[in-house]
Design a protein around this nucleic acid. Structure first.
Lengths: 243, 243
DNA sequence: TAAGCTTAACGTATTTTATACGCTAAGTTT
DNA sequence: AAACTTAGCGTATAAAATACGTTAAGCTTA
């Protein structure tokens, strides 16, 4: 029996809660026959794509179905396509086909997405329960999803050096401290706050709001917002903060 | 009738002849019924992949079948997958399937490759004739191959800024002048030769040979080679020349 | 209410890196 | 031997990255 190749889209969805970098995973608590499973299983959100669907459309659909959000930062970053992808027996139960056949080979187009964690209304019902998991805890994923996650994380780190993508993970109004903490966490190192501030304020696409931080036990900081249009207009090839 | 998605691998193969940046294209001179065609048609080398084949393996196979070369710089850079990819009637004749059906949708995993132009023994026979075409002349490609080519070129330019990939396009022994010319052509601007030399000689992965240029009508230059192992060992995340 | 704590916010000195440009050397061609 | 061409070394200046000092503004607590 010859099986056709199937194309799926998987998304590494990043979020930031102010302290940790997180990713949105699907947790399988209950096996298909209704019995509880002993081992906890996570997988990246994803789906097979239909013949008529554009890849980017499919990725956006996965994101919308899960979070309810649209027009979100979402970029393709790699394709995974080993034919022996499904090697472990237990992984087979994750795989469905419209024909009901098990799938021996899947080509996965991997996307990474940056979303503001509080805007997402994640789906808590159903068999696949969505959950924000911090990077350190996100190990032991199904299939080759660990590889995909690591590749996505590496892409995010690299991207951050050359394009101001950090703002996508923050609320519309944010302080420079929040931005710096985010950079520090993604890059895994401390940054000098005075130099960070200098570099960041040199660009013109950060607009100071007429507003300050509230309910903090110290001097409240100025709030800023990211002017995406202004950034895109001045964008030549690369622009961002290099640390 | 429901058609299954098909996955193909297309390669943007770059070469450098000392003066121009070129890409390896397949030229179709004769139509399928044997009559000459009026319009010249080019396409990128590529192939459909079988169910059992790894994507990278498939790309390497395309490269080897065409040039006879193995272990060549070859990197995946983007996936193209609009369902309406085949829109023009004339493009249909390029598409085959093992079943003989026309293909309505193809997902293409695009690779770019850097090869030393003189090492390739390209296949000059057969219906699809391979030809090195300079970038400026490479217009009017079949399907969405123009998009793929442009994306590949953009990837190469960006990559060059951060990793020393230029050497892949040069012979094993090369002069700094050759290297500079290559950089100038890919980046489309003149570089100061004294500063270029300073920056390039600071790295440790360029080894001076005990040999000089020959048969030139001026002072012969020192020959260098690229020590790939040394580069990869010292490689942290990015290293290269930024101009 | 004053002292102490925390983070915001501004500034300066130093080092490193990038850029601009002058000049001599070693070959070939005429 | 003079003219020509590219190789190859150096220095002076500008720009960017880094290190670090200091005051300000609000909150908490004694």
């Amino acid at each position: 029996m010859k099986l056709n190749p199937h194309i799926s889209v998987d998304c590494v969805i990043f979020g930031f809660d102010g302290e940790k970098l997180k990713i949105l995973l699907l947790k399988r608590n209950i096996s298909e026959d209704g019995n509880p499973v002993s081992s906890v299983d996570y997988k990246l959100p994803g789906n097979f794509i239909s013949d008529e669907e554009d890849l980017n459309t499919a990725a956006n659909r996965v994101l919308k179905d899960l979070t309810g959000l649209e027009n979100i930062y979402l970029k393709q970053f790699k394709v995974f396509g080993k034919p022996d992808r499904v090697s472990k027996e237990k992984d087979l139960k994750w795989l469905h086909d419209t024909t009901g056949l098990p799938i021996r080979r899947v080509v996965t187009v991997a996307y990474y997405s940056l979303i503001e964690i509080n805007r997402s209304k994640i789906e808590l019902t159903g068999n696949n329960k969505a959950e924000w998991v911090s990077i350190e805890e996100a190990r032991e994923l199904a299939f080759d999803h660990n590889d995909i996650l690591n590749a996505g994380l590496s892409t995010l780190r690299t991207k951050l050096q050359f394009e101001p993508v950090g703002m996508e993970l923050l609320p519309e109004k944010f302080t420079l401290r929040q931005l710096q903490t985010l950079y520090e966490i993604i890059l895994s190192r401390k940054l000098d706050n005075r130099n960070f501030r200098k570099k960041v304020l040199k660009v013109n696409y950060l607009t100071a709001m007429n507003e300050k931080e509230k309910d903090v036990a110290h001097k409240p900081a100025q709030l800023y917002s990211f002017n995406k249009e202004l950034y895109l207009n001045n964008f030549i090839q690369f622009e961002g903060f290099q640390f």
